[in-house]
Design a protein around this nucleic acid. Structure first.
Lengths: 243, 243
DNA sequence: TATTCCGATAGTGAC
DNA sequence: GTCACTATCGGAATGAG
């Protein structure tokens, strides 16, 4: 009955900005972290400094899901497409992400190292008495991480996601949750700055969120059967974590 | 993903017949009534004779919802459009419905007579000692009944609905329930035999079930808001029954 | 357009 | 595309010795 809104020529993210003003406090839920990082327990805030806060996502969409929040208010209020136009800022974020990836990788080792076969020789070396000067590398946990942003963020404060690849979490509850981390809607930080004609600037037009559900690991297509995807993700998770 | 089935030139009810063969026992749920009416308690079977069984609908869509079931197997297995081509049969059904309407009206009087203002003088007369020879007519409960069939029945045994106009029942659970008794999908028995070009022969094409929800009493349009219609129907019911 | 169960889809409201 | 809640919409199974 209500006709579809005719798309305009404006990039998607500009339209979104206009619609999501600060009347919605719920979309400003990350603001407290950058204003008062010290008020949160270590289980929530991994660390903070003058320029960044790293927090565990309150509704993680993978078994590990961290957010890096730039504290600069003049950047935090921008869409990532615009914020990362500033190459100096982008470089600074990349520097911090480089550190945070090591932190996140260490977290994955803590979570899964005991059961991962690729950690076996490292585990054995650590158990030696005395341990050797140099430990085997073990599993490359950094390669199990994704770092990037959503083409159309719903939280107003600029945030960069660092998630493990598993997409296994009770908070992942519907198709858009999954597709926001499993389609070009998720843009790797390495892809910035974005070309002017990059199609990912128009996530709505491209229909990323409505795409068929496809397993990140084996590519199996689940159409719109989210529940079946969820079952499958659990199976893939169990296999992935012990590699 | 699955393309819409192309409609054929066949009338809707012929197509339906082909699809709903007797492999679906659930669509033959009325068969026991005409085979063994004596095996049901009076709370289920109002009465039966050699040719008809009158039962309370197991899932009533109004506060009173009765089905008249012709027992003749050669008619019971037909679509009502075809069964009522036989004018002699149609006449016999009409005769029975005439009786059943009186039974149903008496039932409505039993249900609502005590609270209906139009029954007031009749109630007072009955309470006199001795009662007068002739009671006031009271409310015309027959005018609160609808008698007819569905343009595309889902139960295979031929059945004629006798329902009170209120459409107030916990079993009325979705749009199609309501629209099957509030659009031309419901065809009054008086309208038979149907003209060859009667549009109601093509209920699917006409989209009766997908129509906006409109109150039978005040005409208010509820679009697809079934729950709001339900609330409204309760209000209308409370006003209607005390008229 | 039989019911029932399950699940996918859609709109809202949140201060 | 934040969550959480409600409700609408959509498919599949339904029995049976």
């Amino acid at each position: 009955m209500s006709p579809k809104r005719k798309p305009t020529e404006q990039p998607d993210h500009k339209q979104t900005r206009l619609k999501t003003t600060t009347i919605f406090k719920n979309r400003d839920g990350l603001g407290d972290y950058i204003k008062n990082p010290e008020s949160f327990p270590p289980s929530v805030v991994l660390y903070y400094n003058d320029d960044f806060v790293a927090v565990h996502d309150r509704y993680p969409k993978s078994s590990l899901h961290i957010l890096l929040l730039p504290r600069d208010r003049s950047k935090s209020c921008l869409h990532p497409f615009d914020a990362f136009e500033d190459t100096q800022f982008l470089a600074k974020v990349r520097e911090e992400i480089k550190k945070l990836r090591r932190v996140a990788a260490a977290e994955l080792r803590r979570m899964y190292g005991k059961s991962s076969v690729q950690e076996e020789t490292r585990r054995e070396a650590m158990d030696e008495d005395p341990p050797p000067d140099e430990l085997p590398e073990g599993r490359d946990w950094q390669s199990e991480l994704l770092c990037g942003i959503h083409a159309s963020p719903s939280m107003n404060n600029l945030h960069i996601h660092i998630i493990s690849v598993d997409r296994y979490s009770p908070c992942l509850k519907h198709r858009k949750h999954y597709n926001s981390f499993a389609t070009p809607f998720f843009i790797d930080l390495a892809d910035f700055p974005l070309a002017d004609d990059d199609v990912r600037r128009h996530p709505g037009r491209e229909g990323y969120m409505q795409r068929d559900l496809k397993c990140w690991r084996c590519g199996m297509n689940f159409g719109n059967k989210f529940t079946r995807l969820k079952d499958h993700l659990e199976q893939e998770y169990e296999k992935w974590k012990v590699l």
